[in-house]
Design a protein around this nucleic acid. Structure first.
Length: 479
DNA sequence: AGGTAAATAT
DNA sequence: GATATTTACC
C-alpha cells in the first residue's frame, strides 16, 4: 500500500493472520516496525520464486518442528496436510481426513468404526482411518513365514547371515485384531520362541511406512517397530527391513553429519551421534552415499549463487526468517540450534543439506497432492529480520546464504524499485513453490535463520524510538 | 571400516 | 522407467 499508515493499520488489523509484508521500501526501521506490529516477515520486492520457496520451507518446517505445544493452531493444518501427504501417522493427532493408506486385508474394517473420522468420510477406502496410524500397506501382510531367522542385527551387526525371513507383523492399531495377530504369531513362531517378541507393534507404529510418527521430535526408531531389536521377534524380520528415511530421521542424520563435520562424518560416527536404534552402520553408509551424491550435485550451484550473493550482500539486509524458538525439541539435543550452515569458524560444515532452495534435492517420493488452502500460520514469532552486523547480534555470516537469490531475476536486492508488475510471482509459480516446500519437508531451512531474535529487534526498535511493541499504528515512520 | 557400484525392491 | 535401499566387493 502506498500509504504507510494504511499499511501499518492493516497489519495491526490483521493481527491474527500471519502476515508477510512485502515492500520496495527497504529501510530498517520500516522492517522492524512491521515485525513489531506482528508481521511474520518482511520481504523486499520483487518477490522472487526463491523467496517464496524459502518462506514455504519455513512454514513446512515449522509445522513439523514446533512441538505440539508450541505449534500454533494455525500451523496445524499445514502439519496435518504434510503429514497426511507423507502418510505418516501422527499419533494421537486427530484424524486427517484422507489418508492414503490402504488397508490391509486383515484389518480392514474392523478397526474402528469411526473415530473421528466420521467427519470426514473416507472416500474410497473404507476402513481405517484415524486410528492411529494405520497400517501400512501391503506389506503387512507379509507375514510370511519364512522363519528362521535369527538375526541379530542389532546395532550394527549386520550379519549377513541372516537369512530369509520375512514376516512382518502387522500391527493393528488397536491391537486387537486378532486375526492378524494370530497369524503373526503363528508364523513367527520360531522366533518367538526365541524370545523376542513382538511387542512392537501396537504401540509402535508400524513399520515402514508409518513410523515416523512423531514428527515432532522423536524420531526414534526408524526402523520399524519400535525400538530395539525388537522386531525380531516379530519375526519380522530382519533381513531386510527397509529403513524408511523419514524427514525426521534424515534430519537427525544431517544433524549428526553437521555436528561431526563433513570430514569426520563417516558411517560409524554418524551412527553414534544419531543414536537411533535399529539403524545399522550400513544403513547410514548407504544414506551417506546418497547424501554425498546429492551434495555433489547441488553444491556447485551453490557456489554460483554464492558469488551472486556476495555481490548482493552489498545491499541491505535481507530479511530472513527467524527460526521459531521452539524448534528444538526433539532431535537435536545438542546444539542449540542448527549447527548449521557453515559454522562460522567451525568446521566447514557445508553440509547442510541437500538442496538449495531451488529444487528439491530429493524429489518427492510420490506425488503428494498438495491441498491448497488450509494453511495458515500463526503470526507467532517466526520472523525477525536479520540485521546487518552492527545492529544484530545474530547477523549471519555471509556464507552461503542461499537464501534468496532470484533465479531469474536480477538481484537487486531490495533497492531497485520496479513496477508492480513483476513484483508478484504468477500463481503458478506460487503453487509450484508451495508444493515443493510441502513435498520436501526435510529440506533445510534456508539459511540465515537464526533463532528468533526478538530481543534484538526490540532493542533496536527502542533505539530508534519505537518503544512500544505493538505500537499503535500511528503513522508513519521514519523513512 | 569406508567407499562405490551392482542388485533389488518399490 | 526412476528411485530408494540393500548387498556385494574392493
Amino acid at each position: 500500500m502506498s500509504n504507510s499508515n494504511e499499511r501499518f493499520k492493516f497489519l495491526e488489523t490483521a493481527k491474527d493472520l500471519p502476515t508477510i509484508m512485502i515492500s520496495n521500501v527497504h529501510c530498517l526501521s520500516t522492517m522492524m516496525k512491521c515485525i513489531a506490529l506482528g508481521a511474520v516477515e518482511f520481504l523486499c520486492k520483487p518477490l522472487s520464486e526463491d523467496k517464496l520457496r524459502d518462506i514455504w520451507q519455513h512454514v513446512v518446517h515449522k509445522a513439523f518442528n514446533a512441538g505440539g505445544s508450541v505449534l500454533s493452531e494455525s500451523l496445524k493444518p499445514v502439519k496435518d496436510s504434510v503429514v497426511s501427504m507423507l502418510q505418516l501417522g501422527v499419533e494421537t493427532e486427530e484424524p486427517n481426513n484422507d489418508r492414503i493408506e490402504n488397508a490391509s486385508p486383515a484389518h480392514e474394517n474392523e478397526l474402528e468404526q469411526s473415530s473421528g473420522s466420521d467427519k470426514y468420510p473416507a472416500p474410497s477406502t473404507p476402513q481405517l482411518k484415524q486410528g492411529a496410524r494405520l497400517l501400512d500397506d501391503g506389506d503387512c501382510q507379509e507375514l510370511t513365514n519364512c522363519s528362521t531367522e535369527k538375526e541379530n542385527e542389532e546395532q550394527e551387526g549386520e550379519s549377513k547371515s541372516v537369512e530369509t525371513t520375512c514376516a512382518m507383523i502387522e500391527v493393528t492399531p488397536q491391537g486387537h485384531d486378532t486375526q492378524s495377530l494370530t497369524e503373526t504369531v503363528i508364523k513367527g513362531e520360531d522366533d518367538s520362541a526365541a524370545g523376542v517378541k513382538v511387542e512392537n507393534n501396537q504401540s509402535g507404529h508400524l513399520q515402514n511406512n508409518e513410523n515416523l510418527n512423531n514428527p515432532e521430535g522423536n524420531a526414534e526408531n526408524p526402523v520399524k517397530g519400535s525400538s530395539l531389536p525388537n522386531l525380531d521377534g516379530t519375526r519380522a524380520n530382519r533381513k531386510k527391513i527397509k529403513v524408511d528415511w523419514t524427514p525426521e530421521l534424515h534430519k537427525k542424520f544431517v544433524q549428526a553429519v553437521e555436528q561431526l563435520g563433513i570430514d569426520q562424518a563417516i558411517p560409524s560416527r554418524i551412527l553414534d551421534v544419531m543414536k537411533v536404534e535399529g539403524l545399522t552402520r550400513h544403513n547410514v553408509a548407504s544414506h551417506l552415499q546418497k547424501y554425498r551424491m546429492h551434495r555433489r550435485h547441488i553444491l556447485p550451484k551453490e557456489d554460483d549463487r554464492r558469488l551472486d550473493q556476495a555481490r548482493r550482500s552489498y545491499f541491505q539486509p535481507r530479511p530472513i526468517m527467524a527460526y521459531p524458538p521452539c524448534h528444538t525439541n526433539h532431535t537435536f539435543p545438542l546444539s542449540p540450534a542448527y549447527p548449521v550452515w557453515g559454522a562460522p569458524g567451525g568446521p566447514p560444515a557445508g553440509v547442510q543439506m541437500w538442496g538449495s532452495p531451488g529444487y528439491s534435492p530429493w524429489p518427492p517420493r510420490e506425488n503428494w497432492h498438495w491441498k491448497p488452502y488450509p494453511v495458515m500460520m500463526h503470526a507467532d514469532v517466526w520472523g525477525c529480520p536479520v540485521m546487518p552486523p552492527p545492529l544484530n547480534p545474530y547477523s549471519s555470516p555471509p556464507l552461503n546464504a542461499t537464501g534468496f537469490h532470484s533465479t531469474g531475476t536480477v538481484d537487486n536486492g531490495c533497492n531497485i524499485p520496479q513496477n508492480s508488475f513483476d513484483l508478484h510471482p504468477a500463481e503458478e509459480v506460487v503453487d509450484k513453490v508451495v508444493k515443493e516446500a510441502i513435498n520436501n519437508p526435510w529440506l533445510p531451512l534456508p539459511i540465515g535463520l537464526k533463532p528468533p531474535s526478538t530481543d534484538s529487534v526490540l532493542a533496536e526498535l527502542s533505539r530508534q524510538g519505537i518503544s512500544t511493541i505493538p505500537p499503535h499504528i500511528n503513522g508513519s515512520n521514519p523513512t
